[in-house]
Computed example of a mutant assay.
Amino acid sequence: MIKTISATLDEKGNSGIINVLVDEVYYLGVESRSSMILLETPSRTYYTPGTLNYWTHVLNRSGYHFHIADRSNSINISKIVEVDERYKIAFFDKHDRSKKCTMSSTGKREVMELLSQTNTPYVLL
């Protein structure tokens, strides 16, 4: 199982490579201007090259539970603590609502099913 992803603090890589713990990643996002994947963590955003499909597949084959929730986000199922069913938003911290991820209608339905299958504790809003 991989434990880290090599990433940078900026899109151009000026910071050099930083290893980001996969266990800290809330979700993967797409940076359309630069074709980079965003790694959203509690403390900051990191950048790595690749596609959403590629990273979701690699992480799932490495023992994690990521799911593409809409065309630009792949959610780490084990990090969800609350789901707003009406607005289709997943939250990752009960006390800080700034880290959130949108879902499509189909994505929300699939995420809810995965949450029940993996026995991930969460609150439905």
Rank of each mutant, 00 (worst) to 15 (best):
M1T: 13
I2G: 12
K3E: 13
T4L: 04
I5D: 02
I5P: 12
I5A: 06
S6T: 13
A7Q: 08
T8W: 05
L9I: 09
D10W: 05
K12A: 10
K12C: 07
N14P: 07
I18G: 09
D23Y: 08
Y26V: 15
G29K: 06
V30M: 02
E31A: 09
R33F: 05
R33H: 01
E40M: 15
R44P: 00
R44N: 03
T48Y: 08
T48S: 04
G50S: 05
G50L: 02
N53A: 11
Y54P: 03
W55Y: 05
T56W: 01
G63R: 14
Y64F: 15
H65I: 07
F66K: 02
A69G: 13
D70Y: 06
D70M: 05
D70Q: 02
D70I: 08
D70L: 04
S72R: 03
N73D: 12
N76S: 12
N76M: 13
N76H: 15
I77R: 07
I77W: 04
S78Y: 10
S78V: 08
S78T: 10
V81C: 10
E82D: 00
V83I: 08
D84G: 09
D84K: 01
R86K: 12
K88D: 07
I89N: 07
I89H: 03
F91S: 03
H95E: 15
R97P: 10
K99R: 13
K100E: 12
C101P: 14
T102R: 11
T102G: 15
S104L: 01
S104N: 03
S105F: 11
T106Y: 09
E113S: 06
L114T: 09
L114V: 02
S116I: 00
T118S: 06
T118D: 09
N119T: 02
P121R: 02
Y122T: 10
Y122H: 06
L124M: 06
